[in-house]
Each structure stands twice: as C-alpha cells, then as structure tokens.
Design a protein around this nucleic acid. Sequence first.
DNA 1: AGTCACACCTGTCCGC
DNA 2: TGCGGACAGGTGTGAC
Length: 288
Amino acid sequence: MPELPEVEVVRRGLDRHVVGRTISAVRVHHPRAVRRHEAGAADLTARLLDSRITGTGRRGKYLWLTVDDGEALVVHLGMSGQMLLGPIQKSEHLRIATLLDDGTAMSFVDQRTFGGWMLTDLVTVDGTEVPAPVAHIARDPLDPRFDRAAVVKVLRGKHSEIKRQLLDQTVVSGIGNIYADESLWRAKVNGARIAETLTKPTLTSILDHATDVMTDALGQGGTSFDSLYVNVNGESGYFDRSLDAYGREGEPCRRCGAVMRRDKFMNRSSFFCPRCQPKPRQPRPRAV
DNA sequence: AGTCACACCTGTCCGC
DNA sequence: TGCGGACAGGTGTGAC
C-alpha cells in the first residue's frame, strides 16, 4: 500500500484543493468502505453533509480532514485506496462519492477494499490532537515532534527482529514493507537482526535513513508500481525508479554488486543484499 | 510482550 | 485457454 510518502502526497493534494470547501452531497456506494465507522453509513452520510472542511492532517499512513464541528474524517487508503478530485468517478471500484460546493467531486476509489473512511472525535495524545482511531499510532519520522532518541530507546528494549519493529506502527509509524527494506539496505543492516543487539548509532542510522528515503520518495511524488497508487489527480509517482532494494531480487546490489536476495519474512517478501546486509547467525538447532 | 495465524478483498501473473 | 496457486504496498484481532 501507500506508505507515508504516498499518503502525504495525497494529503497535500487535499490540503490544496478542499480546505474551505463544504460537502454538499455524500453517497456511500459500498458499506465495507465505512465498516470502521461504527454508527454506520447513514450516520456518516448525515453528519458529513453540509460540513465545512477546515484542514488536513496525517500521522503515519492515516490521513484526515478536520471539519467544522470539531470532528475528523479519517481516511485510510489500505492497500489500494485512492482519494480523487475532479469529475464524478465512473470506476467500478468507486466506494464513496462526495460533492463539494465548488462542484468538485471528492471520490474514494478502492479496488481491494482494505481502506475506508470514518468520522470521529479528536483526542489529545502527548500534546497533539489526533482522531481517536489514530491515538495508538506512534509519531512518524516526518513529524516535527518525532523523538528519534526515544524510539531508539524503545528499540533497544525489543527482543524482536528490527524489520518487525520498523513495521510496527506503535513503535514508529509510516514505514511499510518497501521503505523498511530501503532503510535497512541504506543502513546495511539485515532486517532479521534482533533490535536489542544493535548499537545506538546503528539504530539511529536506520531511523535517519528511513527519514531520508521517505523524504526522497516524497520529492518524487511517491512510489507507484502501477495505476493503483496515485495522487488526487490520478497521477503516479516516480520513486520506483530509485528503489535500491525492494523488488530487486536477482539484480546486482547498487553498492557492492552482489546478487540481491529475497526472503520470506512475516509472510511477506524482504529484499536485501547478502553481502552488505549479512543475515544474523541462526541459533543452532539443539541436537536430538 | 511478542509471535503467529488469520481475516478482510480483488486482481495479476505464472506454471501446468 | 483455463485452472489453481502464489503474490501484492496494510491493519486488526484473538490465541498461545
């Protein structure tokens, strides 16, 4: 799915085009898209109608629009969600359609239906207002109040693989499978290494590389392998051309030339250079 | 606390 | 061609 850079591209597009607008029509085409809005589709529709959009926000992979009654319309893109502005979408994957008072349609299109909308209250967590469903999500590396040292400290106490921790949105948010692999490649660390065995400088470097790679990706409009991941105008990003690890199985490492490998990890693929990022020694199986 | 399996979906690609 | 299986960028839950 869209990871932090792709979600931020979408947030910026929404911020530029919909803040100040009023929602003049709402139609939920598929109930699954509002399954996390517990009061149901009719409630969401009724409450959204005539709401004025006052701002946008994002934490990790969650984004939201604040509305004038002090609530937030939380959007998660899941694996394939899109927020599109322009004419009414005719896609068979159209899940929610809204109309704004300037005549623009704001549509939620989602092929795999893992994404969705919900309208919720804002709560204050650690001095920052976020929608209630986002309260458990840690700050992301692009958050001005991201506390790198605090995250390193958390990681130093984790007897668990570093990649697993990078993907844990309650430890640090915004990082998904692609940028985890890219960050670990840049830091020359194998994702199977146990977090608590890594030094403070190494952990710091991994987080710094995560920040850098996501900033770079943002500058190129995000990563798109196909038409599923697009900005509010339906355009793809270009960062896929800059990936050094993800998807490069069998190709030479851009740093040392060794053949890049792919391993199964947490039921998903991990791409790494076997020379730059050697695997940790496995505990020897006990003799029978 | 951490891990694992699984659930939720649709679509594409690959081998047979 | 068709079929089955593997795989795809995410999150949440419940069992151990």
